[in-house]
Design a protein around this nucleic acid. Structure first.
Lengths: 113, 113
DNA sequence: TACGACACCTAGCGTGTCGACATATAGCGC
DNA sequence: GCGCTATATGTCGACACGCTAGGTGTCGTA
């Protein structure tokens, strides 16, 4: 049981979009899905999640619908909207570029300066 | 001339430590060095740099000394302290773990859920 | 009927980056 | 000598965002 990392600032929206892109899900379930697809190395807090969901829906990237959960409780199901799909893609590309840039910097040796 | 990325929140300290680790440098020069080792894809703002330098020195990760720049102006030169070297290493490892986790998430397919 | 797991939400805080501004000086063209 | 640009160091307020810590209600089970 290794320690979990905090979410890197600026990546939460992308992670949520990705989680929802794998299939519609209610908010509470998103917490577990992110934990799952990160293999227990990331844990989202509820106090981070719900404002983010509001943000994403407000932007038109996800859409919600009240429904019933597997446990017979009312739950708000989110699905990825078309704009959200595009957004996820552009954020992913941006992330890849950023990760590449930082990796490059971290591998720079004094001789290269 | 492609567009430059904003600094990812939480990575500036690491980037500065890395820049200084490549050889002592004054603040103004750090801006250019980071631009250089990122191959012009990252640009640090002065309003971000100087508070960060204060932060890093306050933590004992870098040390400063007033000197004279190549252009005969007074400039504060920073060098990496021993604690900063350790810090840079641990931040680098943390970044690598995080990048790996996020890459894994982004590559998850619906079948794997 | 008490309790824990499920499911939603909000308020306030801390951190960190940015944009805009302020200050000072060396070197250069005129 | 005068103004301009590049060099160099900062400060300040605004703002985004994730976290901690709470609060509400309901279902299933012991």
């Amino acid at each position: 049981m290794d320690k979990q990392l905090d979410v890197l600032q600026g990546t939460l929206d992308m992670l949520i979009l990705k989680a929802v892109s794998l299939g519609p899900l209610h908010g509470y379930g998103i917490l577990f899905r992110i934990q799952q697809i990160s293999r227990d190395r990331l844990e989202i807090q509820q106090g981070s999640l719900y404002p983010a969901l509001y943000r994403l829906e407000h932007q038109g990237w996800i859409a919600s619908e009240w429904g019933e959960s597997e446990n017979n409780r009312k739950a708000k199901y989110y699905r990825l909207a078309a704009a959200g799909k595009r957004r996820l893609q552009s954020e992913t590309e941006k992330w890849n570029r950023m990760a590449e840039v930082i990796a490059g910097i971290l591998h720079t040796t004094p001789e290269e300066v």
